[in-house]
């Protein structure tokens, strides 16, 4: 799955979870979004698992640094 497709499907999830109209990009950081904290990150991970029908392992999520690498991880998992 291309990263462009992932961003297309990730955007509405991200906006729902963060309660924002901001469009997510690879360079977007938590400090850029008001509602982005550790709790909303959990909700984002769970929403992504459902949307892409994938399951992350504990290690993958524990070591996640930013949105760009999250998208790369989704691309790797969702074939």
């Amino acid at each position: 799955m291309s990263e462009a497709t992932i961003y297309e499907r990730l955007t509405p999830l991200f906006q729902d979870v963060m309660d924002t109209e901001i469009v997510p990009t690879a360079v977007l950081r938590a400090s850029d979004v008001e509602g982005w904290d550790s709790l909303s990150q959990i909700r984002l991970v769970v929403a992504v698992e459902e949307e892409f029908d994938i399951a992350f392992t504990t290690a993958e999520i524990a070591d996640l640094p930013d949105l760009g690498s999250f998208v790369a991880l989704i691309a790797h998992k969702a074939t």
Binding site: I42, R43, V46, E50, A55, F56, T57, T58, I61, A62
Partner: peptide, 14 residues
């Protein structure tokens, strides 16, 4: 178990 280990959630967030 994953959500419990990662976030200490008592049951699945769903």
């Amino acid at each position: 178990p994953m959500q419990r280990h990662l976030y200490k959630l008592p049951f699945c967030q769903r």
